[in-house]
Amino acid sequence: MSADPVHAISALTEQLTRLPGIRTASELFAGHPPYAVDAPLRPLFQRGGLPRGEILAITGEHSFSLALAACAAATREQLWCAVLGMGEPAVAGIADFGIDLSHFVNLRTPLQDWLRVTSILVESFDILIVRPGFAPTPGDRQRLLAKVRERRMTLITLDEFPGTGERLGVRDVRWEGTARGAGRLEQCTVTVHGSRTGTHTLLLPAPSGRAEHPAPMPGAEHSVPAVGVAHPGGPVPRIHSVD
């Protein structure tokens, strides 16, 4: 006669509960809702928001802007966001992304101490944007990941970071608004490749300063190959997956 099935399940539950970062067994299945992001950025993430308990890598030329735009909605919900290793960001630009400045902190610590500072900040902040000063050893990486998972916060690195969950790469950056010798830069179209969600195109920043869906352009199919977008064959990609 085997053990009582109810008893076996409760033993399993207890065992799971003892794992670091898992407080109740149901948490394992239900998970935590991701942190909210602005509507145009939702398709970029697998669960429609910033994944919690994971390291998210954003790479490419426009990565800092994308990271700021992604955490804007969360700071407006009174969550705290810290930036590490970015020197002196421009406050006006940060405010344009919709970030609540009273929940935003910039850290100017020596680059070689980034891992130490990050491990302190992980304890209390909800979102961290970090430019690593050096590549950590695999052991450090595992410890950091375990801490992030336990705290259920989001760590965004602006560099390649092995072992990350989602990865977003900003591939193509195209500024618009200048004609030949006239006008000024008004918006920027970027192509973002998500490791789990495919390729998306969005305006970052749009004329308002925030991230937005690109406007449908009549005759865009013809202009696309001419300026050499990453997708020479198809029409202009407007938030659709090409997986």
Binding site: S65, E88, G93, I94, D96, F97
Partner: peptide, 9 residues
């Protein structure tokens, strides 16, 4: 400074 503005100084 008209938007969009840079996010880095």
């Amino acid at each position: 400074l008209p938007a969009p503005r840079s996010s880095s100084t």
